[in-house]
Design a protein around this nucleic acid. Structure first.
Lengths: 154, 154
DNA sequence: AATATATAGTCAAATTTGGTCAAAATAAAA
DNA sequence: TTTTATTTTGACCAAATTTGACTATATATT
């Protein structure tokens, strides 16, 4: 067992007890506690608390800073969304993107309102950058939105 | 929690109790109360009571001076969205855009899920273009989404 | 009027956090 | 025993907060 494994176990234990969905830590405190350098905490988080493994990481620097780890649930539509994300990268046309949204709405993965919201961001007039950069930007934006859906029940 | 967070909470509490729309404070009194330098109050106001978050700040120097914090009110959802669109154009930072989303979610204009969906599109990593174009692109995207909300009651 | 006093504002340096990246060390696999 | 992957470390970076010197403005006093 490496120190990284021990820190991972420690953090997961806190998360499990009391059914907590979220913990906030101070990086330097954990580092002190396990007598390691602060950046080792980043290493543990980057390798063990990834979004693929179902964790969301947020943090703030400066006085009162913290690292927040939140447990997120896989959704039923996870595989579907994952497949779509693969298809639309690294670039996607406005038409193809719209097709994806309509399909998701028909399958009740997103509401009509969400579809309109998402569609608004994919418009070439809104993005207003030259091709081919525009289709790449659209792919990044749509991927980002679909990724949040992978972990969020309505 | 930093001192700034505590002062923010304190001021918001006063604003909430009694449905007050406005409070007037003496900068030095608050500074004394929380044992900080007076300019820290300016810092709290500049970072936490911004127009994006729906506050108006007025002040007066000299004897009998004060800082007045007003929660801005809107007739209806349509007018609120319109006002926000004006504020965020022609450019908006990621922080200011997030402030707007959090406010809309608190006011139940959007759901938490919609907030996350929208937030995903505003991330600087996702937009991935250089400043200042990025802040302009973000403004266009957010405006487009808010505009669809103007005409889509849930 | 002129001057003194009482407020608030600005700005940048110092401080307090967390982030990144790559080299060095160690462990695991071939 | 090489080669490869993982972990550990530390130097340097970035962001948020805290602090204080200096400035600006309104009111009170002379």
């Amino acid at each position: 067992m490496s120190i990284s494994d021990i820190i991972e176990e420690y953090l997961k234990n806190i998360l499990q007890t009391n059914e907590k969905q979220m913990i906030e830590i101070k990086r330097s405190e954990i580092a002190d506690q396990f007598e390691c350098v602060p950046s080792q905490i980043n290493y543990v988080i980057n390798t063990r608390f990834t979004v693929e493994r179902g964790y969301l990481i947020e943090s703030k620097r400066g006085g009162g800073g913290y690292i927040r780890i939140t447990r997120v649930e896989h959704q039923d539509e996870f595989e579907l969304l994952d497949a779509i994300i693969k298809i639309i990268n690294p670039k996607v046309s406005q038409q193809a993107a719209m097709d994806v949204l309509v399909r998701l709405q028909e399958k009740k993965v997103i509401t009509t309102r969400e579809m309109k919201l998402m569609a608004a961001t994919l418009d070439r007039e809104v993005l207003a950058v030259m091709l081919p950069a525009r289709d790449q930007l659209r792919a990044r934006i749509l991927s980002a939105m679909l990724t949040t859906l992978k972990y969020n029940k309505e």
